[in-house]
Every structure is written in structure tokens, then in C-alpha cells.
Design a binder for these strands. Structure first.
Length: 683
DNA sequence: ATCCCTTTATT
DNA sequence: ATAAAGGGA
């Protein structure tokens, strides 16, 4: 039972590194001898962040792809269904006699804790555990400023990454063959990632996307040899298919960032030699987006609560508008702002959104609707094909103005102006909002200003087949000013209370009473009183209008409808207009009929939310010296209070958000993780 | 050169 | 919002 002696095989534990190329853990396993390749599916461990439907679809396909690659190299992928990854690992150890465990690092808060526990538990069993960097150019603990401190702004961080004294490791080749370990006594489980109705909803995804590491590799090559050179010019257009479309591949580690970086750099040198300025600029911009992904891991590692709490403390005092019908209107794309609505419908229909539009819809959510950003983040999590906790947390914190270098909080982006910026001809809006398709470009981004005659000619009746703005921009500005005033007052009061040593009651109770994500029931019930007139062609007008379909897809869609009837009672049923707007690239059109049903996982989420909350609360600790060093279930990274910075005052006035002085000094509640690097790290 | 205006980017 | 960068007189 000791797990075998020195001669045992190695377990390679796959997680979000679903590739055989440039996979250090796999390479180490192969080097050490016989390999047992394992994937453990334990979504309940993710708590509130149980993966969404489209994300699970991707995972399913990616695993199948990996399995067949591994088989062709000599060994199958053993899959385990679990609620406790670590005990499943122990099972595999015991049934295979493995003596070593190899895996690649992850940096989200849950993985940090779980992986640390895995190391402790397996090491205690006499297993040699080694872990590697496969997800980043540089490990977070290797990128520090001149004082050895972590960076607190992106640009400084990225500058440093680009000028590190040593290059990122060169990508590893895939193994030529793998000696299989003995898995005859190791029971694998068949993993189920979707139920019947989800299967139907997912049917169209495969037309637009090909999960799997070799497909990721093809996508990378295609991008580098194609759209990359025009990236700088095109990246501003909401509608163009000129982004890399690598994000879901990257999320699951189907392609290694080091390889991306490496290949893109080669192009850069080439273009630099040719004097191709635009090409170089494009490379820099694309690499920057890779850098943001790196930074998201960096932030997550250094501030493992960043998916739950604002990095700048004062935002915890912001009086969010708890308005579930606004939340619903946003999700359904019925806010009355065409660019926002088009984006939300594309998201709903396809699980995909251009980065620019992500900014537009999330900024609208936070600044105009003033809904709690975590709701929006959770919805992204549930609906995005490339849902990624670290990236999404960074994105939402940036938008919310809760990063030292984020947008200023009192700034409101006007969707009307952004519309003309990112979608100057209104094509994007017309594609996703068929009810506005006949509106002239002059009014397409602000129909509420359009003369009655124009609206009539376009078949639009505001408030009926397309909503009036649910919140006016001016009203939003006013409310935002008031809310900010209130926020600063509360913050000041809390600070005073702490300084007087009264007790941190005010601060802490708010801090740790994050506004709960609405329960699904609450979300789905109380159907909004809807518009009186169905849009032309709509058959169930109480349901949401969604994007137009290509005619070739309508048939599939209708089959889907019948198999999905039980969802009619819920909100998330899509109506399929019959007017076809075909054309454009496959990715855009072929996705369109895909339906989203958010929160299928109610049950699971309810049962498991507690885990996450405990973990987060404990690890974030109070804004005073953390004494909580242990908790149920295992060892966590040990926290240490910021040392000298404690005497420093908080930000002194409203201008503090963007203040240039040290973030950590101004925000001592943001603990640094002190001794993580002391944990066994190899590779 | 210098000023003034426009454009662009912001994680 | 704002600051930096670019362009034109």
C-alpha cells in the first residue's frame, strides 16, 4: 500500500494542460519510465465556479482528442469522476503502484490550495511529487521589481517579462512514444459532461470550433501566417474575424503559451528585418494580450481572492444596485442600447465575444447599471466558451476600476459613442438585433433619438419590439456620483473606526458579505412583463429574441427546440427568427443557433458554494495581521501581513484611485503571499 | 522649433 | 477622463 517502490511508474496528472507537446510534466514522466496518464474530473471542487455548459463541451472534446493522441503514443488517458481530486490520486497510486506524480502548475485560488494539499498528502505516502511550469512564460514568483516585490501594474510587469535576463524555456517536442504503466487494476470512469438537452444545445458548437491540441496548433499556425500581421489594424472592429481565437485552446492548455510566444517572436524578427512597422506593431499588441493572460495568473497568485473581492479596498463600500430585472435585461440583450444588446445576444448564442465587446458590455454593467461586478463575472463564467477565472477576474476588476491601474471608477463609457467606434456601419448590431436591421446607420446606435417616421419606416416601435434604454446615461452619471460619495464616506468612517481601535466591524462585515449571486430560482422566476407586440416572425414572443439564423441551421435549431421543451418555463429559451443573414465566416454564422442555458448546475452549486467561500475567506483574512493559518481540510499558503506598510495611511482623497504611490502601501488589506515559493516547486 | 488640435489607448 | 503621441501650420 505504500504506493510502490522506486521502480514504480509515474502518474502524469493532466488538468488544464491537455496537450502532448511542450508538456513538461508529461516529458518528465516519459523520461522516468512507464507512465499512467490521468485526468480527474471533480467539478464540485470548483464550488461556485462549476464549469458552464459550453466550457464542459469543450473539455469533453479536448479530452477525447488527448486520449487518442496518448493512445497512439502508447498509453490511454485514465479518467476519473471525483469529488476529491487528491483521494482519487491516491486511488490511482494504489491501483497502479506508481511511485511518482508529475503535474503542471495552475494559479487559480482553488488549485493553489488543492495542489498544495496533493503534494503534502502524496509526499507523505512516499510518492515523489514534482510540478512544473507549463502555463506561463515565467513563474509569478520569478517576476519582481527592483526591490524583489511583485509588480502592481500591468505595464511594469509586462515590461519586466519582456526584458528578463533569460528567455522563456523553449517549447518541448512531443514524446515519440510512451511506455504504458500497468493500469489493469486501475478503474477509470466514463465522464459525463452534458445531459441530453445540453447535448442538443451544444450540437452546433462543433461547426465553429475544434477543440484538441493539434487543432489548437493549427489555429495558431493559421493565425500567425494570416491575421496576425493585420492585428493592429483590425482588432478594433467588433465584427471582424481577425483575432486569434486561441483563448479556449489556451484556457485548456491545448497549446502552450511558450510556443505561441516563440513562434510570434520569430515573425516579429522577420518583420523587423523587413522594416514592416505595421507587422511589428501587430506583434507587440498581440503579445500584450498574451501578457494580460500572464498577468491574470500573476494577480491570482499574488492576490488569490481577486475573483471575489476588489483589489482596491474602497470598492467594497460601493452601494451596488441590486436589481435583478436589470440583470436579466442585460443577460437577454434588452437594455435598449444596441451595441450592448448585440453583444449580449452574441454571447448567449455563441459563447463568444470579441474582447472589445466584452469591455463594452461589462463596463455598461458596472457603470451604467451599477450591478455588482461579480454577478456579471459569474454570467461570463457560465456562458463563455473560454471562461477563465483568472482572466475574467482581471477583466472585471479592470472594468470596475478596482485595480491600481484600472479604469477610473467615475468614468462612464457611452455605448452610443462606442457603437460608432467599434461598429461604425452598424453591421454588428444589425446582425445580432434583427429587429433593428432596417434602421439607418445614423440612428443605429441611438434609436431613442430617431424621428418617429424613421422608426416607423424601420418597423420599430420603441418599448414594444425594442426597448427604450432601461437606464439613461445621465441618470447613471448622477447615481454614480452619489454612490461614489457614499462609498468614500463609508470608507472614511471605516478607516476612522479602525484607527480609533474601535473594531473593524463596519469594514469587515461588508467586506465579507459579498453580495450573493442571485439563486437560479430567483433569476428564472418573475418573468418580466414583456413587450406587447411580437417582433415580426416571432412565434413565442414572451421568449427572448436571439440572433438571426442561417437557413441551413434553422432545421437543426427546431429539432433542438423540441428536445429542450422543459426549458421553456425558464427564461433562457431562444426564439429563432426566420430571416437569414448568411455570409461571413463560419465562426460567426455557424454558432448562431446555439442556446445558452445558464445555471443548469443549481443543485451542485448550492451544495458546494460553501467550500469556496471558506477557502476564500480564510485565505483573504482580515485586514489585520492574519492569524488564521489552518483550516478544515488542509494546509493553505501561509499569509503574512504587509510589514512596514501598516503605518501608511490609506488613500487620502478621491483622486486616490489612480494614485501613483505604491498600491500595497495604500492598500494594506491586500496581503501578499509570502512563503509560497518555499513550497516544493520543481521544474 | 513650437503651439495647437486631433487621434488613440487605457488591463 | 486624460495623457501621450502625431500632424500641420
Amino acid at each position: 500500500m505504500s504506493g510502490g517502490g522506486g521502480g514504480g511508474c509515474s502518474i502524469v496528472w493532466f488538468r488544464r494542460d491537455l496537450r502532448v507537446e511542450d508538456n513538461p510534466a508529461l516529458a518528465a514522466g516519459v523520461r522516468a519510465g512507464a507512465v499512467v496518464a490521468v485526468f480527474i474530473y471533480a467539478p464540485e471542487e470548483e464550488g461556485q465556479y462549476y464549469p458552464g455548459r459550453v466550457s464542459r463541451w469543450w473539455l469533453k472534446n479536448s479530452l477525447a482528442h488527448l486520449d487518442s493522441s496518448l493512445r497512439s503514443l502508447g498509453t490511454p488517458l485514465i479518467t476519473k469522476r471525483s469529488t476529491d481530486s487528491v483521494s482519487s490520486l491516491l486511488d490511482v497510486v494504489n491501483s497502479t503502484g506508481a511511485s511518482q506524480l508529475f503535474f503542471n502548475h495552475l494559479y487559480d485560488p482553488l488549485s493553489l490550495i488543492r495542489d498544495h494539499r496533493a503534494k503534502e498528502v502524496l509526499t507523505a505516502q512516499g510518492i515523489t511529487v514534482r510540478s512544473f511550469n507549463s502555463d506561463l512564460l515565467y513563474e509569478p514568483w520569478d517576476v519582481n521589481d527592483a526591490n524583489g516585490q511583485p509588480f502592481t501594474t500591468f505595464s511594469a510587469f509586462w515590461e519586466r517579462c519582456l526584458s528578463m535576463p533569460y528567455d522563456p524555456q523553449a517549447p518541448l517536442l512531443p514524446p515519440k512514444r510512451i511506455i504504458p504503466g500497468d493500469v489493469s487494476r486501475c478503474q477509470g470512469d466514463t465522464l459525463v459532461f452534458e445531459d441530453e438537452s445540453e447535448k442538443a444545445s451544444n450540437a452546433l458548437l462543433a461547426r465553429a470550433w475544434s477543440p484538441g491540441w493539434s487543432n489548437a496548433d493549427k489555429a495558431l499556425t493559421a493565425f500567425i501566417n494570416g491575421p496576425l500581421i493585420e492585428y493592429a489594424n483590425n482588432r478594433r472592429k467588433a465584427d471582424s474575424a481577425t483575432t486569434s481565437f486561441l483563448s479556449p485552446h489556451l484556457h485548456f492548455g491545448e497549446v502552450s503559451v511558450k510556443k505561441v510566444f516563440h513562434l510570434v517572436r520569430i515573425k516579429q524578427v522577420l518583420w523587423a528585418n523587413e522594416g514592416n512597422q505595421a507587422g511589428e506593431e501587430s506583434v507587440n499588441l498581440f503579445l500584450k494580450s498574451i501578457g494580460l493572460r500572464e498577468y491574470s495568473r500573476y494577480i491570482s497568485f499574488n492576490h488569490p481572492y481577486s475573483h471575489e473581492r476588489p483589489l482596491l479596498g474602497h470598492l467594497k463600500f460601493f452601494p451596488w444596485v441590486i436589481n435583478e430585472s436589470h440583470f436579466k435585461a442585460w443577460r437577454q440583450g434588452r437594455t435598449g442600447y444596441p451595441l450592448v444588446d448585440a453583444g449580449m445576444r452574441e454571447l448567449w448564442a455563441t459563447g463568444w465575444l470579441h474582447d472589445r465587446i466584452r469591455v463594452v458590455v461589462s463596463s455598461f454593467f458596472v457603470k451604467v447599471l451599477q450591478l455588482p461586478w461579480r454577478w456579471g463575472m459569474k454570467y461570463f463564467w457560465d456562458t463563455l466558451l473560454d471562461a477563465d477565472l483568472e482572466s475574467d477576474a482581471l477583466g472585471w476588476q479592470y472594468i470596475s476600476g478596482t485595480l491600481p491601474d484600472g479604469r477610473e471608477f467615475d468614468r462612464i463609457d457611452n455605448p452610443q459613442f462606442e457603437g460608432y467606434k467599434f461598429d461604425p456601419n452598424g453591421e454588428y448590431v444589425r446582425r445580432w438585433l434583427p429587429e433593428l436591421s432596417r434602421l439607418p446607420t445614423e440612428w443605429i446606435h441611438h434609436p431613442w433619438n430617431a424621428p418617429e417616421s424613421v422608426l416607423q419606416a424601420a418597423g420599430i416601435e420603441l418599448g414594444s419590439n425594442y426597448p427604450l434604454p432601461i437606464v439613461g446615461i445621465d441618470a447613471a452619471k448622477t447615481r454614480l456620483q452619489e454612490a461614489l460619495l457614499q462609498m468614500w464616506q463609508l470608507e472614511a468612517a471605516s478607516r476612522a473606526a479602525i484607527e480609533n481601535g474601535v473594531e473593524e466591524g463596519l469594514g469587515d462585515s461588508t467586506e465579507f458579505a459579498p453580495i450573493a449571486f442571485p439563486e437560479d430560482i430567483q433569476m428564472e422566476e418573475n418573468p418580466e412583463p414583456v413587450r406587447n407586440n411580437p417582433p415580426v416572425g416571432a412565434r413565442r414572443y414572451e421568449d427572448q429574441m436571439v440572433p438571426s439564423m442561417t437557413s441551413s441551421l434553422v432545421r437543426v435549431e427546431e429539432e433542438e427546440a423540441s428536445s429542450d421543451l422543459r426549458n421553456l418555463a425558464e427564461e433562457s429559451r431562444a426564439e429563432v427568427p426566420t430571416n437569414a443573414t448568411a455570409q461571413q465566416n463560419a465562426r460567426d454564422t455557424e454558432n448562431q443557433g446555439v442556446l445558452q442555458n445558464v445555471n443548469r448546475n443549481t443543485q451542485v452549486q448550492r451544495n458546494t458554494t460553501v467550500w469556496l467561500r471558506n477557502a476564500a475567506e480564510d485565505s483573504t483574512a482580515e485586514s489585520s495581521s492574519s492569524t488564521r493559518r489552518e483550516r478544515d481540510g488542509g494546509v493553505v499558503p501561509v499569509w503574512s501581513p504587509p510589514s512596514s506598510s501598516y503605518a501608511e495611511p490609506f488613500v487620502d482623497d478621491e483622486s486616490g484611485i489612480g494614485a501613483s504611490s505604491s498600491y500595497l502601501q495604500n492598500h494594506p488589506q491586500s496581503h501578499r503571499l509570502m512563503n509560497w515559493t518555499r513550497l516544493p516547486q520543481t521544474g
